[in-house]
Design a protein around this nucleic acid. Structure first.
Lengths: 152, 152
DNA sequence: TCCAATTGGTTTCAATATGCAACCGATCGG
DNA sequence: CCGATCGGTTGCATATTGAAACCAATTGGA
């Protein structure tokens, strides 16, 4: 996978994985494209219709997601292309679920309907929560960032 | 908490919690501001220095994060203001961790150093993973979105 | 075989967002 | 009272985004 950015661009913060993730998918559309890909969308037209995104912007985002190894583009039936999630793209599932659960809790009025993510038996997912090595729930106050890890 | 957007703005997708979350924190800076707040930053100057963001943009983002109930702003020692995470802001911890872990796995070359998040005992966090109600690991293929939930 | 629709774009132009640098009022320490 | 700090605001240039028109290649159907 190509982890570099286009020439001339620098990472927002070279050593912070959050900053890198935001550099790759932290715009208005990329994560929603990934969400729709997880929901079964594969063609340019499908993404366009589901998202209502401008066509030139969609072209650009799909290209960048392919460049960054999040989507894979291949010819489908001749006139169609199929964009599919790579392993790195599928691995964004956890982040999408975390944002979804946050949105459910904090971005809807109590009486406002919203879609929910359910497991194979149709039951709503339990709340995702970071844990320490010993299994205790972790928060920003009870964890900390160790600033750099030597290569190796 | 105020969950509405400014007049004239509409949600990207009215019923999707992912879209709502992206509407609130899905830009180049908001999530990094939240990350730094979790790491102890509180004042305008601290955020400015850590992020290297343009001052007018920082003003705008801080104002929006306060509007959306993610940060709380209060006078500190007279000339300083303190921006602190609200409960909704602290609750973004899970999403930030998920993005961080994804970034660690997919946005760094193998030999490239990066910061790591550690628990109270200094041990690296286990990988976060969505589970079903029965405890089995879940992916995009083994889960699905139930399109709307009636109010109530 | 030819026509119209579909698909996946590109181009052009306007509107919006972002960044940089200068400026500013209030506060504080000395 | 002076200079530095803090938290901004303002003006202007540049970059990003969006809407709409256009376009080439493919395809199904008459």
């Amino acid at each position: 996978m190509d982890v570099t950015l286009a020439a001339g661009n620098a990472w927002t913060d070279p050593a912070c994985p959050v900053a890198r993730a935001v550099d790759l998918v932290g715009d208005r559309w990329s994560l929603l494209i990934v969400r729709d890909a997880m929901d079964g969308a594969t063609t340019f037209t499908e993404f366009h219709q589901r998202l209502g995104i401008a066509r030139n912007i969609l072209t650009d985002r799909l290209r960048k997601l392919v460049e960054h190894g999040i989507l894979d583009r291949r010819a489908a039936d001749g006139r169609r292309h199929a964009y599919r999630l790579t392993e790195a793209g599928r691995d964004l599932f956890t982040a999408v679920v975390a944002l979804r659960q946050w949105g459910e809790r904090h971005a809807f009025a109590p009486d406002e309907p919203h879609s929910v993510l359910v497991d194979g038996q149709g039951r709503e997912l339990p709340r995702l929560h970071p844990l320490g090595q010993d299994g205790t729930p972790l928060s920003a106050e009870t964890s900390r960032v160790r600033k750099i890890t030597a290569p190796g």
